[in-house]
């Protein structure tokens, strides 16, 4: 007998379409999961309202659950408890770092622009860094420059 916990475990294999080392579960995108009379309902919380990867995420979750034998799968976008960057798990933060992205700082910080300056460089660990652009190659990433190792890097943006 499958249950919600088991389904969530399976979903750890569904990766973010734009950051393929990070699962949707660790990204915090997967919300409530409900099993009702053989049907599965999965709530997803987009990182950004305009994120174009949301459709792909829905499709990937549906495909996996179909492959696991569920015929009736509903993946619905929800803003009931909207995504924020503190929903990224510690495992997710580590995956981001290994992939070369600085994980977002934790807590209610973004009212202060300084939080985007001096982000720890994921390459050398230095903090002599500066924000180059709050907008990066995707909606969820900003661009920074490290004066210690002289390399540009990206950060997964804090959001709350």
């Amino acid at each position: 007998m499958n249950n919600e916990t088991e389904i969530r475990k399976w979903l750890e294999d569904v990766m973010d379409p734009e950051i393929p080392v990070l699962s949707l579960v660790d990204l915090g995108v997967v919300g409530d999961i409900e099993l009702k009379e053989g049907s599965v309902f999965v709530e997803i919380r987009p990182t950004f309202v305009g994120c174009p990867a949301t459709t792909q995420m829905k499709y990937d979750i549906e495909s996996l659950l179909h492959a696991k034998g569920f015929d009736d799968v509903h993946v619905d976008i929800s803003y009931k408890s909207p995504w924020n960057s503190d929903m990224i798990t510690d495992k997710g933060r580590e995956a981001l770092r290994k992939f070369g992205f600085a994980p977002p700082p934790k807590g209610n910080l973004i009212d202060d622009i300084d939080v985007l300056e001096h982000v720890e460089c994921p390459q050398c660990g230095g903090t002599n860094t500066e924000l180059q652009n709050p907008f990066g190659p995707t909606l969820c990433r900003s661009i920074h420059y490290c004066h210690d190792c002289k390399e540009a890097f990206q950060q997964f943006k804090p959001m709350n």
């Binding site: 950004f48 174009p52 907008f135």
Partner: peptide
Amino acid sequence: LEEDIAFSSMAQDKIGHSYA
């Protein structure tokens, strides 16, 4: 380049917000 990216990103956000 940074402003090119910024306005493009904000365009994507705006259209995403309107879609919602």
